[in-house]
Design a binder for these strands. Structure first.
Length: 204
DNA sequence: GCGACAG
DNA sequence: ATCTTGTCGC
């Protein structure tokens, strides 16, 4: 159980992160190296996988596993997954980091993609499989995700793409039109593979 | 009180 | 996220 004063503190941290977002245009066409991160769990043990490659494929990846104590609380995912994701990302360099989760399409504009982007000072885009907050506003064939009256990202198919750091709405639209990134799909697969491997070995 | 609620 | 088989749909 997490105390209310702890959540209050986390909201203070989120206000700092959101105030540090650099919303600027990153020409996706110039992006060479792409990285992605995701986490899978086997009970209390988390398996974070960081990958590097292109939008469509993984060239190399690294896994970091360890106990994850903070529980999942809607709106505070960063406290549960950012620590282990940062460990997996150590040493990885890239022009853009794709994060499994929302960026500014968050109640306080401080989703996990924002947190990682600010801490690593990297361009990041959050890509989530479901809605956390916001309404959809169609405009010119694009389904924008609007939160507190501001377009924070776009919804394409069943996925939500939102600003993390050092990118803008245009970049999000561009990436969403490329379809769900193969590197994220593959990273997710790897994440479950390691989790599963842990199950097999611990079962004789 | 009721409904919503990333992974 | 995770527990889980077959099954309805694009």
């Amino acid at each position: 159980m997490v105390e209310e004063h702890t959540l209050l503190f986390l909201r203070y941290l989120q206000s700092v992160f959101s105030s540090m977002i650099k919303e600027e245009h990153l020409k996706i066409e110039n992006v060479k190296e792409v990285c992605a991160v995701d986490v899978a769990y086997n009970g209390k043990t988390g398996f974070a996988v960081a990958s590097r490659g292109s939008f469509q494929e993984v060239v190399q990846h690294k896994v970091f596993s360890g106990a994850v104590d903070f529980p999942y609380i809607s709106g505070y995912l960063f406290m549960r997954e950012a620590p282990i994701m940062l460990k997996a990302l150590e040493g990885f360099q890239c022009d853009l980091l794709l994060v499994d989760g929302h960026g500014t399409a968050h109640p306080r504009r401080s989703g996990i993609a924002v947190v990682l982007g600010v801490l690593l000072n990297l361009p990041t885009i959050g890509i989530a499989k479901s809605r956390l907050t916001g309404e959809i506003l169609q405009d010119g064939g694009v389904n924008y995700v609007v939160v507190n009256g501001k377009k924070e990202g776009v919804k394409s198919g069943k996925y939500y793409y939102s600003i993390g750091n050092k990118v803008d709405l245009e970049d999000c639209v561009y990436v969403s039109k490329m379809g769900y990134p193969g590197i994220l799909k593959e990273t997710d697969r790897l994440t479950k593979k390691y989790k599963k491997g842990e199950n097999e070995s611990s079962k004789e």
